[in-house]
Simulated assay, not measured.
Amino acid sequence: MAAARMPRGNVFLVEDEVMIRMMVADMLEELGFRVAAEAGEIGEAIRLAETADFDLAILDVNVNGKVISPVADLIKARKRPFIFATGYGSSGLPEEYRDRPALQKPFQLETLGKVIEAALKSAPV
């Protein structure tokens, strides 16, 4: 039996597609992270962005037809790093956040790991 290891960090995950959210959560766990909070709609994501304890957020750009900017604004105000996940490419990112890291859907485990590491390294202290 393997010894339980400490998570490498807590992640807040926002994704409206349940199956994709489950797949990303599994990928995060495989990378050694813990999903601290997850949301599938903007209202819940806003509440969790204000209250949840997390080290990094992964945000779907378009959540049930609504742009993720209000959630990103709250996370930025808390000085936490975040990554966008999008099927639209960098042009689909909110204009004010086009300098932020983005994962192009669908993405692989290795790509997710690299983008997370880069986001955590460049996070404000």
Rank of each mutant, 00 (worst) to 15 (best):
D60L: 06
G87N: 09
L56A: 09
P106F: 10
G9Q: 00
V11I: 11
A118R: 06
A118E: 06
S91R: 15
S91P: 05
T111S: 10
A3G: 03
F54G: 12
S90H: 12
A39M: 01
A49F: 06
K79W: 05
I68Y: 08
Q104L: 15
R34A: 14
F84H: 04
Q108R: 15
F33I: 06
A85C: 08
V67T: 15
V61S: 07
K114P: 04
V24W: 05
G9K: 00
L109G: 05
G89D: 10
A37V: 02
A4R: 10
F84I: 01
L59I: 12
S90G: 02
P81Q: 03
I58V: 06
F107R: 09
G113Q: 00
M19D: 11
P81R: 03
E41C: 04
K76F: 14
R100P: 13
F82G: 01
R34F: 09
P7D: 07
G87M: 10
M1V: 15
P101L: 14
R21D: 03
F82A: 01
E30H: 12
F82W: 02
Y97I: 13
N62F: 01
A85T: 07
G40Y: 02
A77M: 14
V63G: 04
E117D: 13
V63L: 11
K66Q: 10
S122C: 03
V14R: 08
A85M: 06
A3M: 11
Q108P: 07
E110V: 14
A57V: 00
A72P: 00
V61H: 05
D16R: 01
K121M: 12
V18P: 00
S69N: 09
V14Y: 08
P7G: 10
I83L: 13
E44F: 07
L31M: 04
M19A: 08
A123F: 00
A77K: 15
F82D: 02
G65A: 02
A3T: 12
Q104E: 12
M19I: 11
S122L: 12
R8W: 01
F54C: 11
M1Y: 15
V115M: 13
R5D: 14
L74D: 01
V71H: 05
L93T: 13
R47M: 08
L56G: 10
G89L: 13
E96R: 14
G87D: 09
E30C: 13
E17P: 03
V67N: 15
V14E: 05
I58L: 11
A25E: 00
A37P: 01
N10T: 12
S91L: 10
S91Y: 11
L59Y: 10
F82L: 03
R78Q: 08
L93R: 04
Y88P: 06
A49G: 08
R100A: 15
N10W: 06
L112H: 03
I68W: 09
R47P: 01
S69V: 05
I42T: 07
L93G: 08
N64Q: 11
A52Y: 04
L56T: 07
A118F: 04
L112G: 01
R34N: 14
M22V: 04
D26C: 09
V18Q: 00
I116E: 11
E96Y: 05
D73S: 09
L112R: 01
F82T: 00
E95P: 15
D55W: 03
G65H: 04
E17N: 06
V63D: 02
S69Q: 13
D99F: 08
L56Y: 12
T51M: 00
G32H: 05
P106R: 13
P101N: 14
I116S: 12
